[in-house]
Design a protein around this nucleic acid. Structure first.
Lengths: 108, 108
DNA sequence: CTGAATCCAGCAAGATACTG
DNA sequence: CAGTATCTTGCTGGATTCAG
């Protein structure tokens, strides 16, 4: 690999390592909008497969960006919530939204 | 594909579509630090292959985020510069840097 | 409902060699 | 120096099925 140095020295690189996946970004965007259940996310994420959604959620949980909460009911219910660390990603998304709104596709 | 709708309706999605690649982010980070030549970028990007660098630069050029400037000299010199559209991505990187600095790896 | 398991496809990227 | 060409590898994700 190209990253075997002692650690990720650059904070931007660290951030991208954590949330930079194709789906990860979109999952977080939806969570910032209040969605927190598995099916709810899956429905609103343009047909993401359960496999991928599950994998990404686990990654985010391991990075302490979200917390997984299981309710022992039938049918089972699981809610995902942003931690403080996750919540503080919000400015990144706000900035992206601003930029995306200003510069539409192919607009010079 | 999962994106055959009329366009990318979400500005965040648009932004990610444009700059969300693994290397794209890092290339831009280096350009924000003033690097603008091919070899200079390649040297400082942890061994990115010329093929990948070339492909990503072309994408960025097509998205009007950078401009390619060829100087007819020997040896040839090519400089890449951020457009206004590209320059305005900077706040995203600043926000990421802030977050990455605050929340080091695995820090809860 | 919330996943886990399995298998497979596609593309991004690496390695390497070569050119104007 | 700034790429292109070619070939190969590896990861991400899709599709589907099944389970608690």
């Amino acid at each position: 690999m190209t990253l075997e140095q002692s650690e990720y020295p650059c904070p931007i690189e660290r951030t991208i390592q954590t949330i930079g996946g194709k789906w990860t970004f979109l999952i977080l965007r939806n969570m910032f909008q209040g969605e927190n259940r598995f099916n709810q996310l899956q429905r609103n994420l343009d047909g993401i497969s359960p496999r991928t959604l599950s994998l990404r959620l686990k990654e985010l949980e391991q990075a302490n960006i979200i917390i997984r909460n299981v309710f022992p009911e039938t049918p089972p219910r699981v809610e995902y919530h942003l931690t403080e660390k996750g919540e503080e990603l919000r400015p990144i998304f706000v900035t992206m939204k601003t930029w995306g709104n200003k510069w539409e596709i192919m607009k010079p």
